[in-house]
């Protein structure tokens, strides 16, 4: 990344648009990966297109586009990389994973509060007690609205030890 950091040091940096450079490089790598993953599938002919034809050529198009972005990043002045705030995504992603893991095994009445309480810490202004109250209220609200009123297929509580499942 040393190429990217030269930005403000007087000398003209080699990469003049770090944003385009990183995006382009990522696209080239991603496209190469997709083309590699498609290597086992037949492309067919134009008269009888195979399953790999469209994805492969689309990926090649994306890769070329990425390459152009990389080249442009050396030629044209562009924007610097933006800062990523990791706190929000970290807690929200953790909460999504928790929900995905627990919804089938213990059910909504456990999964929802767990996920919501975790997600809440993604905000810098989190107030744990307020969050806890909100979490409980929302769980009840969602259970009533989605399960009882709208009859959605949400498993509510699963406790195999007590053979509870509803």
């Amino acid at each position: 990344m040393s190429l990217l950091n030269k930005g403000g040091e007087g000398l003209r940096p080699a990469i003049r648009s770090p944003q385009n450079f990183v995006a382009g490089a990522f696209l080239v790598l991603a496209a190469a990966f997709v083309v590699f993953m498609l290597s086992g599938l037949p492309q067919g002919t134009l008269r009888a297109m195979g399953p790999a034809m469209v994805p492969r050529w689309t990926a090649i198009g994306i890769g070329l586009g990425g390459a152009v972005l990389v080249v442009l990043s050396f030629l044209k002045e562009g924007e610097a990389l933006e800062r990523w705030q990791l706190r929000g995504p970290f807690f929200v992603l953790a909460s999504l994973i928790l929900f995905a893991v627990t919804i089938r095994s213990v059910g909504f009445l456990v999964a929802a509060p767990l996920a919501m309480f975790t997600a809440g810490f993604g905000s810098r202004e989190v107030r744990p007690i307020e969050l806890a109250i909100f979490t409980v209220a929302m769980t009840v609200f969602c259970a009533v609205v989605f399960r009882v009123v709208l009859n959605q297929p949400l498993p509510m509580l699963i406790l195999p030890a007590l053979s509870i499942q509803f």
Binding site: L96, F99, M116, A119, G122, E125, R127, F134, T135
Partner: peptide, 26 residues
Amino acid sequence: RLMFVGIVIFCCIGVYSINSEPADIL
């Protein structure tokens, strides 16, 4: 700070209800 928690759980319920497939949330 509370509203987004609601949005997250609505999305979870929405996704899960489509196919009852937890992997969809991922």
